[in-house]
């Protein structure tokens, strides 16, 4: 009796171990987009849109000299309305649960590691530095994510979020040295003034951030903030010496946020 029970428990234990390890191996080897079963999908294929814009590494240059508070507000407005970013502060009056993809801040907050004692009048008092996800070339958030819900797109270097997969552990928020990520502490939908039907909203319990307008690049457009920036922002391929961004960088001195951390941000600032 005692023996058979022990043997049963042992076998059961090994089986569970085996199933666990097996599923893990399958998970490790399987490509995330492996074809779902047989049927018509096997013969079907996915393609990029013909108007899709390609680059090796998308980047952005923000010329803060051309910015003022009203342009910054317009940029934020454009981004947040297109991406269904909820106005948590306006709706619930709760700054702690705020969600923002791009927002203007003061120089001393955007560049806290830089000496801010002797700044120009404009830089020391006005919130005119737009900050957003830097789409780092070496993103700490991506390596922190335990489910690959946040990942760097191999094709063009954009750091993306897969809202379907995010488990809401907020490890990426701790890992991001730029405070670029927001968490949905509650259902965001009631706080969206006018839903854009072309872009999904989010649900409670997931992290979100700027996606460099991947959905607009796919239809051949520029990011929304760049369009609204009245020429203060330039967008292009940082790896292409002929691109607009590289031409600008050849002439102007640009800085990045927290370069000492080795994350290699793809957003650069001319101040």
């Amino acid at each position: 009796m005692e023996n058979s029970r022990r043997r049963f428990l042992k076998t059961a234990g090994y089986s569970i171990l085996g199933v666990g390890a097996g599923s893990m191996l399958i998970g490790l080897s399987a490509h995330p987009t492996k074809a779902a079963g047989s049927g018509p999908s096997a013969a079907s294929l996915f393609k990029q849109r013909p108007e899709n814009r390609e680059a090796e590494r998308w980047g952005m240059i923000i010329d803060t000299r051309k910015l003022n508070e009203s342009i910054c507000e317009k940029m934020q407005q454009a981004c947040h309305s297109i991406h269904n970013v909820p106005d948590i502060v306006g709706k619930f009056g709760n700054k702690k649960h705020e969600i923002k993809w791009i927002w203007p801040t003061e120089f001393r907050h955007a560049f806290p590691e830089r000496e801010a004692e002797f700044l120009t009048e404009k830089l020391s008092h006005k919130s005119i530095i737009p900050v957003l996800c830097n789409h780092c070339d070496n993103p700490p958030c991506v390596q922190a994510c335990p489910t690959k819900a946040t990942f760097k797109r191999e094709s063009d270097g954009i750091v993306m979020m897969d809202f379907h997969r995010c488990i809401g552990c907020r490890f990426c928020m701790a890992a991001c040295p730029f405070g670029s990520r927001s968490f949905n502490f509650r259902d965001p939908r009631p706080a969206i003034k006018k839903e854009n039907p072309d872009f999904p909203t989010r649900m409670r319990g997931v992290v979100e951030k700027c996606n460099f307008c991947a959905e607009r690049l796919a239809v051949g457009k520029n990011p929304a903030c760049v369009e609204a920036s009245e020429g203060a922002m330039t967008f292009g391929d940082l790896n292409d010496p002929e691109s607009e961004v590289r031409k600008l960088l050849a002439e102007e001195f640009a800085i990045r946020r927290k370069p000492n951390l080795g994350t290699f941000p793809s957003v650069l600032y001319i101040v």
């Binding site: 998970g27 335990p146 488990i167």
Partner: peptide
């Protein structure tokens, strides 16, 4: 502490 605890198995499904 998880925002989406029902997805916790994603940690095993997509081991990182």
């Amino acid at each position: 502490d998880l925002g989406q605890p029902m997805r916790i198995l994603n940690v095993i499904l997509y081991p990182s």
